[in-house]
Each structure stands twice: as C-alpha cells, then as structure tokens.
Simulated assay, not measured.
Amino acid sequence: MHGYTPGEIEPTTEMLLAHKYPHDRDKVAETITRSVELGEPFSSRHRFIDTHGVEHQVMVVADRIFNHDHTVGTAGFYIDLSSTLLTAEHEALDTRIQELVNARAAIEQAKGVLIRMYRIGDEQAFKLLVWRSQETNTTLRALTEQRLRELPAVPPDRPDTVSAFDHILLTLHERIPPDST
C-alpha cells in the first residue's frame, strides 16, 4: 500500500511515520507510543503519502508484539478508505449541487415573474424576494417555490398582451445585432 515491493525494505516505525501526512504524523506517533508504553491495542484513522506521492486515507487496527513480558512493536492491518470516502464525498456533493441548482432555478423563475409583473430590474426583483424572506422569517427557497405553486391563481394576461408576446417570441431572431450571434 505504501508503494514498496515485498522485501524491498525493512518496515520500521520511523519509516512508516515518515510517510504520514504532516498534519497527522504527531497524532499517529502518540498513538503508537501510548500503545507500546501502556500495552494497549490501537486503531487510528489518518492519511499517508505513498512512494508515488499519492495520498491515502486509511484506518489502522493494531496490537502489540511481545517478547517475553514486554512490548517490542506492533502488528496489524490497514484498510484503505480513500475510494470509499471519495465516493461518499461525490455522492453528497452531487446531491447538494442538485439541491442548489433547483433552489436557484426557483429563485430565477420567481424573479422573472416579478420583473414581468412589476416591470422592475433583476436586482430589484431579487431584493424584493430577499425582503419578503427576511420580513416573514421564511427561507428564500421556500418562499419562491410557494410563489411558483400559486402562480396559476393569477388571472391570465389579456389576449392582446399574449399576442404581442407571441409576436416578439417568434421574431426575436430578426432583431439580434450581427455581433451577438
């Protein structure tokens, strides 16, 4: 796991500690010392850098090695948690990103409704939503999602307004400046 081939080196505590991630090294050294001095088994979760410079997040479970009646070392095993932790991290991040995208979409839609209804700018629409959120002690996301759910209760625009909008939508491409395409 550290990058050595079997038999290439004689593993020592010093050599193993040299591979520990700098911020974890002292904690691991203390754990080993305590185990040897107090004669206790130990487990540790920490990071180390292998011979190729790759960081591993591991759990180590170890016990003492005795020579007659005193501890001369430790023996145990490593469990590489790197891929497990990375997978969990990615899943949590994917979930959170989707939540943020959904929240942002609701806010943008609610802003669009305010811009259209009140003929205000983007910044003003956002400030209006933030004000209502703060005034009612309601999260911005909950407020905007509820606003969108209730939007069908607003009476439809007059037919001539819808016709004007339809015309604009169908002819937008004719008025785009040449340097914007």
Score class of each variant (00 low, 15 high):
residue 2 H to W: 09
residue 2 H to P: 00
residue 2 H to M: 07
residue 3 G to Q: 01
residue 3 G to M: 08
residue 3 G to L: 07
residue 4 Y to H: 11
residue 5 T to G: 04
residue 7 G to P: 09
residue 7 G to A: 12
residue 9 I to Y: 05
residue 9 I to E: 11
residue 10 E to I: 14
residue 11 P to T: 05
residue 11 P to I: 04
residue 14 E to M: 01
residue 16 L to F: 13
residue 19 H to M: 07
residue 19 H to I: 03
residue 21 Y to R: 09
residue 22 P to I: 01
residue 23 H to N: 13
residue 28 V to T: 13
residue 28 V to G: 06
residue 29 A to M: 09
residue 30 E to A: 08
residue 30 E to G: 06
residue 33 T to I: 04
residue 34 R to S: 11
residue 34 R to W: 02
residue 38 L to E: 14
residue 38 L to N: 12
residue 40 E to K: 08
residue 40 E to L: 13
residue 42 F to T: 06
residue 44 S to C: 15
residue 45 R to F: 04
residue 45 R to A: 15
residue 46 H to V: 08
residue 47 R to Y: 03
residue 48 F to S: 00
residue 49 I to E: 08
residue 50 D to Y: 02
residue 50 D to I: 00
residue 54 V to R: 14
residue 55 E to Q: 13
residue 56 H to L: 03
residue 56 H to D: 06
residue 56 H to K: 10
residue 58 V to D: 09
residue 59 M to I: 14
residue 61 V to I: 15
residue 63 D to S: 13
residue 63 D to Y: 03
residue 64 R to G: 06
residue 65 I to A: 10
residue 65 I to M: 11
residue 65 I to H: 06
residue 66 F to M: 15
residue 66 F to Y: 15
residue 66 F to D: 09
residue 67 N to P: 00
residue 69 D to M: 06
residue 72 V to M: 07
residue 74 T to F: 10
residue 74 T to V: 15
residue 74 T to H: 14
residue 74 T to E: 14
residue 75 A to P: 05
residue 76 G to S: 02
residue 77 F to M: 12
residue 77 F to K: 09
residue 78 Y to I: 14
residue 84 T to S: 12
residue 84 T to N: 06
residue 85 L to N: 04
residue 86 L to Q: 13
residue 88 A to Y: 02
residue 88 A to F: 01
residue 92 A to C: 03
residue 93 L to N: 12
residue 94 D to R: 13
residue 94 D to M: 08
residue 94 D to G: 02
residue 94 D to E: 10
residue 97 I to K: 09
residue 99 E to C: 03
residue 101 V to Q: 12
residue 105 A to D: 15
residue 106 A to K: 01
residue 106 A to F: 01
residue 107 I to E: 14
residue 107 I to K: 11
residue 107 I to R: 09
residue 109 Q to P: 04
residue 109 Q to K: 15
residue 110 A to N: 07
residue 110 A to Y: 03
residue 111 K to N: 06
residue 116 R to Y: 06
residue 117 M to E: 12
residue 124 Q to N: 11
residue 127 K to D: 14
residue 127 K to V: 00
residue 127 K to R: 14
residue 128 L to K: 01
residue 128 L to F: 03
residue 128 L to C: 01
residue 128 L to R: 05
residue 130 V to A: 08
residue 130 V to Y: 01
residue 132 R to I: 03
residue 135 E to H: 11
residue 135 E to F: 02
residue 138 T to E: 05
residue 140 L to Y: 00
residue 143 L to G: 00
residue 145 E to W: 00
residue 145 E to T: 07
residue 147 R to H: 04
residue 148 L to A: 11
residue 150 E to M: 13
residue 150 E to P: 02
residue 150 E to L: 13
residue 152 P to V: 02
residue 153 A to W: 01
residue 153 A to T: 06
residue 154 V to T: 03
residue 155 P to D: 03
residue 158 R to C: 01
residue 160 D to R: 10
residue 160 D to E: 13
residue 164 A to D: 13
residue 164 A to I: 10
residue 165 F to L: 15
residue 165 F to Y: 15
residue 166 D to T: 12
residue 166 D to C: 08
residue 167 H to G: 07
residue 168 I to N: 04
residue 168 I to D: 10
residue 168 I to A: 14
residue 169 L to S: 15
residue 170 L to W: 07
residue 170 L to T: 12
residue 171 T to R: 10
residue 172 L to R: 08
residue 172 L to G: 11
residue 175 R to V: 12
residue 177 P to Y: 01
residue 177 P to N: 09
residue 180 S to Y: 14
residue 181 T to N: 15
